[in-house]
Amino acid sequence: MDETKQLIVVVEDDAGVRLALQRLLRASGFRTLSFESAEALVTAAGASNASCLVLDVQLPATSGPMLYAQLGRHRPPAVFITAHDGPATRSEVANAGGKELLIKPFIARDLLDAIARAMCAAKRP
């Protein structure tokens, strides 16, 4: 495994979407880890080495924005994804510190661009 590749961690409860995201990211040159819930990510301490997180907003139990807020100050940048756009969702993501939100279905290029923007913004002082 090439350790120089950046690690993208996906948290998505829909197994088909999770697998599709992993395939896209791997084909785009990233290493990936994926989890079906926020709790699974926390249990595995999966966010600690991530370059970026891709978080579904509507996860069972702990939502994507709740998870991101709980990760604290030293968290990787994140791209949030949702099928349920609206002012409440946008507010929840923004209040958790999220800057990137994509509405499902989205095209692959939009996700890759959002990841690049999120990682670039995280490098700025």
Results as ranks from 00 to 15, higher is better:
Ile115Asp: 03
Gln70Pro: 02
Lys5Met: 01
Gly97Lys: 11
Val42Trp: 05
Val17Met: 13
Gly86Lys: 09
Ser37Leu: 07
Val54Ala: 04
Pro60Gln: 14
Pro77Asn: 10
Thr89Asp: 09
Met1Ala: 10
Phe30Thr: 01
Ser91Thr: 15
Val57Ser: 07
Gln70Ser: 15
Thr43Cys: 03
Met119His: 02
Ala122Met: 09
Gly64Phe: 05
Gly64Glu: 15
Ala121Gln: 12
Asp14Ile: 03
Ile8Arg: 10
Val42Phe: 04
Arg73Asn: 14
Ala45Arg: 13
Val10Asp: 10
Asn49Thr: 03
Ala88Trp: 12
Phe30Arg: 09
Leu71Lys: 02
Arg73Leu: 14
Leu112Glu: 11
Gly16Thr: 06
Asp56Lys: 06
Leu19Asn: 09
Ala88Lys: 15
Gly29Ser: 07
Gly46Asp: 06
Val10Pro: 07
Asp13Pro: 00
Asp14Asn: 14
Leu53Glu: 11
Ala114Thr: 07
Gly46Gln: 03
Asn95Ser: 11
Thr43Val: 07
Gly98Pro: 03
Ala40Gly: 04
Gln70Ile: 01
Glu3Cys: 01
Leu59Trp: 07
Gln70Gly: 15
Asp2Met: 00
Val54Glu: 02
Asp2Gln: 06
Leu112Arg: 05
Ala69Ile: 11
Cys120Val: 02
Cys52Asp: 08
Ser37Tyr: 06
Gly97Glu: 13
Gly98Phe: 03
Arg75Pro: 08
Glu92Cys: 10
Ala61Met: 07
Leu111Asp: 09
Pro77Ala: 05
Gly72Thr: 13
Ala69Tyr: 13
Pro87Lys: 08
Ala50Lys: 05
Lys99Thr: 08
Leu19Gly: 00
